[in-house]
């Protein structure tokens, strides 16, 4: 499934940029590469999104012995300088993490036509950029089902980080999944903020969780990057269940995290590095979902006891049905609405 570029403006704007490359996409087959990663604000130890990217880079290092360089943004204005510095120093491929860096990459990529770039979570339409996007709504659908089945109060919650379509798409999938198994399930949704700060505010995340718990929620999903640590903490403090996202967060509070909606940013980073290493790197859009193994739900020794047979069977069946196309999940980002 090929999705339309999300940010048409980027494509249009890039037409204005100087030095449009007329040559075909760069091809390499080198033995030694100098990979680099630029993490988004929140940093590589956010326990979620960026950390997953870090895991992938580390795995590549272990597997191949090739070291990589990395930079953590303090604020989004540093993005251009970071990407440009890596490219100028001859790093290749340069993987940038997070949609916030899209406009910076769109700016820098044409300046270094020989460098291979990859971006996670956003589309940048350039001949030397690989854009990795995830169909997160497929995963949140399944954890929504599990949440509704695990809930005794029939009320479940989700705390989103930044209020943007990307996160609304996940809350929408969550809601649809919950209603798929229990049509009367009550789903509470809150967002932390409208700026990048919303990814890094565990205290506010915890506050919202406490309110949702007060309103009766006994399972709460975090979709908030570093903020989510506070969500899972508040859930654990109140002895209810949390659901992790991005990375497998089941082990943060064993027995208190029902499952995690895993988004394999690690695989995206690893694959981008590996493809560059073996010379089969491709520009363009890579859409990853359940079928490609880019999205999944986590079951391990930390949550095994929380998962009943019914739940496991239902989740596995739904996963198979989504892959086969028997269940189609509405994508919020197509029309910016969520059917109830």
């Amino acid at each position: 499934m090929q999705r339309k570029p999300l940010l048409g403006t980027i494509a249009v704007l890039s037409a204005f940029l100087p030095g449009i490359i007329a040559t075909s996409s760069p091809s390499f087959a080198d033995e030694t590469i100098k990979p680099a990663v630029v993490y988004s604000t929140g940093g590589k130890f956010d326990g979620a999104f960026n950390q997953s990217a870090f895991t992938g880079a580390e795995k590549f290092k272990t597997d191949t012995g090739i070291d990589y360089r990395e930079f953590e943004l303090r604020n989004d204005t540093q993005s251009q300088q970071a990407i440009r510095t890596f490219a100028r120093d001859g790093h290749d491929p340069v993987v940038v993490i997070g949609f916030q860096q899209a406009s910076a990459l769109a700016e820098v990529a044409p300046e270094f036509p020989e460098t291979r770039f990859a971006i996670v979570d956003m589309v940048v339409d350039q001949p030397n950029v690989q854009s990795v996007v995830f169909r997160e709504h497929e995963g949140s659908f399944i954890v929504g089902m599990l949440a509704a089945m695990a809930s005794n109060s029939n009320t479940i919650g989700a705390v989103g980080g930044m209020d943007i379509p990307l996160i609304r798409r996940m809350t929408c999938g969550y809601q649809l999944g919950a209603h798929y198994v229990k049509s009367d399930a009550n789903v509470l949704v809150n967002f932390v903020g409208t700026t990048g700060a919303a990814w890094n505010d565990p205290i506010r995340g915890g506050e919202l969780t406490k309110t949702q718990i007060g309103k009766g929620a006994d399972v709460v999903l975090q979709l908030a990057g570093g903020t989510g640590i506070g969500v899972l903490q508040a859930a654990s403090d109140a002895k209810i269940l949390g659901i992790g996202s991005d990375a497998n967060q089941n082990g943060l509070h064993p027995g208190q995290v029902l499952t995690s909606m895993v988004k394999h940013v690690d695989v995206a980073v690893y694959e981008a590095f590996k493809a560059a290493r073996y010379g089969n790197w491709q520009p363009g859009i890579k859409s990853l979902g359940l079928a490609e193994g880019g999205i999944d739900w986590a079951l391990d020794e930390n949550n095994r006891d929380l998962m009943t047979d019914d739940m496991e069977v239902a989740a596995k069946k739904a996963k198979a049905d989504i892959i086969r196309g028997k269940i189609t999940i509405h994508d919020y980002m197509i029309d910016n609405t969520c059917p109830n």
């Binding site: 989103g160 209020d163 949704v189 809150n190 967002f191 932390v192 903020g193 409208t194 506010r204 506050e207 919202l208 309110t211």
Partner: peptide, 21 residues
């Protein structure tokens, strides 16, 4: 602050989206 946190992205009937900022 507590109210603003909880109003983020919430659409109140008749008022529309609350300008949390």
């Amino acid at each position: 602050d507590a109210a603003a946190t909880r109003l983020q992205g919430v659409i109140l009937p008749g008022i529309g989206e609350v300008p949390v900022q």
